[in-house]
Design a protein around this nucleic acid. Structure first.
Length: 124
DNA sequence: ACAATGACATAAG
DNA sequence: GCTTATGCCATTG
């Protein structure tokens, strides 16, 4: 596991309940504005039972695009609704109401520094 | 090192 | 609004 995945996981863990963010936003926070695909892939590789709230991460359209059997769009939507997040008729989430503001780069740096300190064994 | 992959993003038809 | 095409980037085989 390279650090990037761990950074993604750690950052996603910071997403508060009842809020959602996008792959691109996370990638940008990590300093890789074009690595949205990698972020999504990182979440795809998440082991079951992890404490990472993967369901709070959706695409930039505010929609769910998963096609995974284990992590179906239905499941993700159910999890989000359980946290109070609402979907409109088209299945869109309102960023104005449920969008996560994200972390300042200082906060992100703190996380990265922490993982760096633990050195590749990363696990919090 | 090279080719393929993928839960994205954005622009265009 | 939905479908296609292109760009991007870290991970994997």
């Amino acid at each position: 596991m390279s650090g990037f995945f761990e950074r993604v996981y750690q950052l996603v863990r910071q997403v508060p309940p009842g809020k959602v963010t996008s792959y691109g936003a996370i990638a940008r926070m990590l300093g890789h504005p074009r690595a949205a695909r990698t972020v999504g892939w990182a979440l795809h590789s998440l082991p079951d039972g992890s404490d990472v709230p993967w369901h709070r991460v959706i695409n930039s359209q505010g929609r769910i695009s998963t096609s995974c059997r284990e992590h179906s769009a239905d499941l993700q939507r159910a999890l989000l609704e359980a946290e109070g997040i609402e979907f409109d008729e088209h299945g869109y989430v309102d960023w104005e109401r449920f969008g996560w503001e994200g972390l300042s780069w200082l906060e992100v740096e703190k996380i990265v520094a922490f993982l760096d300190t633990d050195t590749k064994c990363g696990i919090i």
